[in-house]
Design a protein around this nucleic acid. Sequence first.
RNA 1: GCCGGGGUGGCGGAACUGGUCAGACGCGCCCGACUUAAAAUCGGGUGGCCCUCGGGCCGUGCGGGUUCAAGUCCCGCCCCCGGCACCA
Length: 788
Amino acid sequence: MEPYDAKAIEEKWQSIWDAEQAFHVDNPKPGAAPDEHFYMLEMLPYPSGSLHMGHVLNYTLGDVVTHFRRRHGLTVLRPMGFDSFGLPAENAAIKDGGHPLEITERNMEAIRVQMRRMGWAIDWQREVSAHEPTFYHWTQWLFLKFLEHGLAYRKEAPVNWCPNDQTVLANEHVVDGRCWRCGFVVEVRNMAQWFFKITAYADALLEDLATIDWPERTKKIQTSWIGRSEGAEVLFRVEELDIDIPVFTTRPDTLFGATFFVVAPESPLVGQLSDSEEVTAYARVAAVRPTEEREQREKTGIFTGRHATNPVNGEQIPIWVSDYVLMEYGTGAIMAVPAHDERDREFAEAFDLPIVPVIDEDGKLINSGEFDGLPYEEAKRAIIESLSAHGMAKPAINYRLRDWSFSRQRYWGCPIPVIYCGECGIVPVPEDQLPLLLPEVDDYRPKGQPPLATNEEFINVPCPKCGSPGRREADTMDTFVDSSWYFLRYTDPHNDHAPFERSIADYWMPIDQYIGGIDHAKGHLLYSRFFVKAMNDFGMLGFREPFQRLFHQGWVLLDGKRMSKSQGGVSPNELIDRFGADAIRIYILFQGPADQDIDWTPDGIEATARFIRRLWRVVHEAAAQPPSPAGVDTALARKAHETIARFSDDIDRRFVFNTPISAVMELVNELSKAPDDPAARFTAETAVSLLQPYTPHVAEELWSVLGHEERLWTSPWPTHDEALLQRDTIELVLQVNGKVRDRIQVPAGLPEDQLIALARASEKVQAHLNGAGRRVIVVPDKLVNIVA
RNA sequence: GCCGGGGUGGCGGAACUGGUCAGACGCGCCCGACUUAAAAUCGGGUGGCCCUCGGGCCGUGCGGGUUCAAGUCCCGCCCCCGGCACCA
């Protein structure tokens, strides 16, 4: 027996896989009968450095599923690519010199090498990268489709500005008021920006969650991010100015308790309502106050001198301006019900405004005229109905979700293909002029204007429509635009006349299993759903959801912190050198359930390396044994069949990846205790075959040691013999008063009365049983419980 | 504050539909074999307390409950993680 040499074995099989293009799959030939197929995808890496252990977990998981499904006879599409536009490469270029392109491609090459060394079964013929013109050509083309359908638009709006990265951020990427990338406090600025109209799909995005197999917590995150609330829009009339101000409320049942009215300081209403210097001054100061301060400080506000009419009772209620009312939500004006809203109460107490309760402890209306006595849920409907008869209210729905601002004032991204013309306005770059290539610039540093704006040749172009001098858009796209459709490009990656052929995308999609971090719950995973729905509406796709099943791997923690780069001693490359890829693969899945965080331990990887050496030795010993006869029926053979059943069920039905390894470890332990069992050889084959998705290199090597000529990675998955799992004797547990007192071996399938007789015959049972026993519980083939 | 997930040996975790003395598998630790020695490897032990060595009692965050039987179901509470949060 040769000693186990991970390096030699792994390099050997990796070369064979490369040479044989082992994991490439073709698209279906036109007219061919569709075979059973499976689209396995993990979120693509961002090439900011090399891979870390978090990636190793993500892609090893996907790899196990890929092999498992392949060996069940499915054609598995498992591509890979790079999310290669974006800030980190650009910032690295600014900091250390060099071009973002060079840095990106260098990182990509390092990652490709790592992925090959990990032995992942990837179809490299389908590789796509966001920064390649052959890809962003179609990102631009898609943008134009969205523009054409009114789902992309430009407008001036308050947006999140990161003063460090010098760019606008989407709401989804402001975390606790800070930039998700650099952690700087985000400012609000009024700027003209590009938006995708994701709000048009708010209801579809909510409803279709019911059609996909996703973790509940992820659905919950998206649901609360979309934040649908049902209520009413109610008009409050200001007689003196002859205007009606709409407010949104979820509690129209409390209208009789609306004792004052409040307008957000940013609202254009402020100017209409008052020209007093104090009011204007308050509004000006309050509007620019940082959000954090607005939330924490005591309620502030100022009376405008105006009154609004409460439509339910005609009462004149004072109109105030206060920064506790948000411009972004609803209409930027509210009716205040201090008796039933905590914030309104605080304000009323601070400014000594009347508080009128309108709902009693039983949830019935009081002080509400004709509606008194109605349960509040009924009152909601009744009051809206009554008001809408006079055109003063209508049912309304509000969302927390805002449109996705996707223009970035940075260099390393996909250029937005439009030209501004003094005559024609926003003019799309004609399709036949795509791709609009990202030009060179002298300086990537953002200096108040996007870097592309400094390239005169790029910027100054004639209008494609009228020919008069125009200016090109200098912003680039958020990288989340690229990742909102990359999974579609994989299906038809070399198409040069369309982003993809619809029939091909429809064949592979939706993705059968998607794996990635939960940190993308309300960003990438929401944007992609929006893109697919929109493209379905454009007639480009025949489905409405991109990711049928979703799984989130846990984080790999080092000293309690998420691994985000390859730290010394924990870099996948160093670990491959020391232990081999197979040991790392098994380690990362053995530590615990794959959706739980795992703490990096050096002991753990030593242990899995030890297991592989043990497997090596035990399988070599078994290879010296004669072949096991067909249908061999020994305790060891049964254990092997049991292991096949457990292992397969764990991955297939339960989607757990740690317990299958335990099961094979148990089997190998048994085998090493019975090296000359007639089933020894069969058991070794079973163990190797089951482990193949986890440890493809050593499994392949041992498969040939066991005398097999055929490739294990293309061999059918082992099946267990159900008959062998049926035991003819079982261990019967005997309980007295619910406590186990004895365990006896009995033939399987005995009738209840015989089981009871056997139980009563047990000395140990008798010792604990004083008297006959009032009641006996029998679970056939499992236990007898005698209750005294 | 609201919503979601979770608390099991020294550690990571297992126990899937209430039913095989809860703790599989692995780490760590202890004992032994091999060795001049160590490493590696192999074998055995390892929840706590008590023991006449037969076994007994206790034990899955805390307190109650349902049941012949609860880590698993119900009620109340504590703690940890995540999402949302002046959203009207």
